[in-house]
Amino acid sequence: MNTQAPAAAQSAPQADAQQPPAPQETAGAPLLGPGETPKIASRDVHVHYGEKHAIKGVNLDIKENEVTAFIGPSGCGKSTFLRCLNRMNDTIDIARVTGRITLDGQDVYDKRVDVVQLRARVGMVFQKPNPFPKSIFENVAYGPRIHGIARGKDEIEDIVMSSLDRAGLLNEVKDYLDQPGTGLSGGQQQRLCIARAIAVSPEVILMDEPCSALDPIATAKIEELIDELRENYTIVIVTHSMQQAARVSQRTAFFHLGNLVECGDTEQIFTNPQHRLTQGYITGRFG
């Protein structure tokens, strides 16, 4: 029954003057049970953009080989939090991240961590497909080359072909590998970006609204791909489409005003959310 929701709601008014606002208690099951090891674990993560407190104490576990969807209204912090996971916020001068994020138990904000290596392990696909102004082949070959993953020409070619294949693009482009990647359709470009991300054998793929610039058919292909990729990768996807979150993810996390309001099995979130805010958002009552 709805025992979680009132508890979480009541914690909000306690955040008063003397102390910085206490993070909202998250409804549902943001953390995995004992005996389950998260791929990524976040504890009390705060992000400040200058004065703005963008993420307020997020505690969340992300399970291996699952798709976790982040949903929430614009400005709720879902993309900001996603970008913490592979330290993309490092590139923003005024951004300050505190708390602890671990990948396989290893602190990703540890000084000794090589950010380039981290981003090879935790790849990213963006909202707008952004292929390099190079050939299709070079787009995919670039990562393995700079990371020194492949040695010979044959090995590079193997990686490019298998990545394009896993991204569901090979059949469409195999005769045009020397053509510019920018000449492909939007959906193909996005799959090229996914191929580029998986070419460096990441463990986690972060996707920031990967389908928002695509038509329904291209979207369906990406969603099918996400479902296949789940077997080998851990995927975190930020999406504005609640139907997409419902279709592709196993777990859903709902953010609002920098708080992680609720996290749980996607099925439960969309049939019986525990928190009123979650219910209000997914049923289209605010946001």
Binding site: A5, A9, Q279, G280, G284, R285, F286, G287
Partner: peptide, 17 residues
């Protein structure tokens, strides 16, 4: 937004409500 106001909130698409 308070718990009560969410509870009473109307759908953004009023025809749905």
């Amino acid at each position: 937004m308070t718990d009560e106001s969410i509870k009473k909130a109307e759908h953004t698409v009023s025809a749905f409500g």
